[in-house]
Design a protein around this nucleic acid. Structure first.
Lengths: 334, 334
DNA sequence: TTGTATGCGTTATCAT
DNA sequence: ATGATAACGCATACAA
């Protein structure tokens, strides 16, 4: 059943059928009704491929992320897909892993097939510190608009939507210092755009309070919950003394919690812990985890609506920054 | 840059270019090389829409799930996307929510656009108990193969891959009973295919041990972690006496854990808790949660490879059932 | 081995 | 308001 069949049965030309389908106004009400009746009767739906060929678009956007099973990214994908679908766009998912090489490969793959109208990069890990490594993204942006969530990058046709991670960590670090807890361990596992912003926030808070930044209190560590716990045990045994831990990620904070449990350290009396992302696991532990909420829903909503504006040819800010919130739970006195 | 441009520059016909692109053997090595050189030089990639129009396929499958931000479903999606891409297929994600009406709407939407080569339904909640409500799935299966993960349904062109949830709960219930813990609360939040299988396993274990099934120990409850906790507190205050809780879901089990914490009940000494899915949150709590692992990775792998067989026209089992594993952690003595 | 011609099902342009 | 027809870019049957 194609447009010719319908046009035959309705006794009109395919052009008229096409006009009816696409809501073109230049059709008499009578004709429209007649055609619609036939369409309904035979349950005709236009062939998406043919339409794609003609319009050079199938209303599809590519969502790229390192690992969609990460709960935080999974939520972002959920929110994006929902809003995109609400605007009539399908989402093609593509998990790239964390290596630049594979990211590049998949971005080019998704694009080279030239079937997506835009690409959304979810997670600041898509923005490399060495800017020349981001060139491949700029290349792709010559063809389709690129939206970056939680990271920022300059470039034509590249739009960034994110939270002010620097400020968030800065504020929380300062607050802890002012509570007298200046032995603050900063634990992070990402050297991405936002990962580095967070560290910078930590440093700046100390500097603004005229305190020395102890470099060995800034710990980069990759590993699962158990490994984080063991790492902290090791640090503690080495004589490290800390009364607060800020992490770049809720998972790390869970590891810190496990460490405290194992050492019999009371929380938050003897140790404050602050996570990042305000993910669902903040409510799975005991006590529940204080965490920085970087407003994922707001960011995703804005991303999609901005993208729609880009499609519409409207002016869209290259960079949109929201502020984060501290969600206070049981692991701090704040 | 299209196939005509390439054919001109290479001094051959478009048919030859097409043959080169598609790896057809009937091309002389010399010609192939010449054409490839031009293709590389101009960075030509075939237009996916045009190709889709001719072949009536763009190598895309639709992945439908109720809520991709659910960590368990998110992991399934991750695994499926990975394996599909490994086979050259893109994944279109579509979150349907939990209502039959919207599921039907989205399934028809994804299909009516006729752009997917198959549909994977992730989660047993797609299979309704009242079989007539599943008719819409059978209707869609007339057009494209349907794969169901974690649920099973009869029907032409419908393939189910799942774990034996009945057996898993049966075994674990029996084990608890034989440890003398026969006051077992069964807590569940899903009336789906697998949800009911699990309950049936619980019942069967009691019957096979010649014990009465206490109906009020089978509790259906929907709600978040806190609500589950409060529900259990209420039950306890009403005089319910239980020394073990089996849940249909890890989240419910976390609620049970919180309940125990609040009441000062020792785990596992005074209360055993067993979750389901072996999701990552099993490792976020204290003590860590014993949980039934329904082999998601195995199931997803099998699903994709079965789908490829379906595409190839090979014989594929309509139903593939794996056995589940109990992963023992800190909330049981088992 | 290579080329010609046609079909795939739309949308859009131009007449009428 | 409606119709005829040309793109859109590829795959492929058939011819050579």
């Amino acid at each position: 059943m194609n447009i010719y069949d319908i046009s035959n049965k309705a006794g009109v030309s395919i052009a008229t059928v096409s006009r009816v389908i696409n809501g073109n106004t230049n059709v008499s009400p009578k004709t429209r009704e007649k055609v619609m009746a036939i369409i309904d009767e035979y349950g005709y739906t236009p062939n998406a491929f043919a339409r794609g060929l003609g319009l050079n678009s199938m209303n599809t956007v590519g969502i790229l992320c390192a690992d969609s099973s990460d709960p935080y990214l999974a939520r972002a994908i959920y929110l994006l897909e929902r809003d995109l679908r609400g605007n009539g766009y399908d989402s093609i998912l593509c998990c790239t892993g964390y290596h630049v090489k594979t990211k590049q490969k998949y971005l080019n793959l998704v694009l080279s097939t030239k079937r997506v109208d835009a690409v959304i990069l979810v997670g600041s890990n898509f923005v490399e510190v060495q800017d020349e490594k981001n060139q491949y993204i700029r290349d792709v942006a010559k063809n389709v608009p690129i939206m970056i969530i939680n990271g920022a990058m300059d470039g034509e046709n590249i739009y960034s939507v994110l939270c002010d991670d620097f400020r968030a960590v800065y504020d929380v670090t300062k607050a802890l210092i002012r509570c007298g807890q200046s032995n603050i361990l900063y634990l992070y596992n990402s050297l991405s755009y936002s990962g580095l912003k967070k560290v910078a926030g930590y440093r700046a808070a100390f500097e603004d309070e005229h305190l020395m930044v102890k470099e060995d209190y800034i710990q980069y560590f990759e590993g699962n919950i158990i490994e984080v716990k063991n790492h902290l045990l090791k640090l503690s045994n080495k004589g490290f003394d800390f009364n607060a831990i800020i992490t770049s990620d809720d998972n790390l904070a869970i590891g810190a919690l496990k460490y405290a449990k194992e050492k019999g350290i009371k929380i938050p009396t003897e140790l404050s812990i602050i996570g990042y992302n305000n993910s669902m696991i903040t409510e799975c532990c005991e006590p529940e985890l204080t965490s920085i909420d970087n407003k994922l829903e707001t960011v995703c909503k804005n991303c999609v609506s901005s993208l729609m504006s880009v499609f519409a040819g409207d002016d869209v800010p290259l960079k949109t920054v929201f502020s984060a919130d501290l969600v206070k739970r049981g692991t701090t006195f704040l």
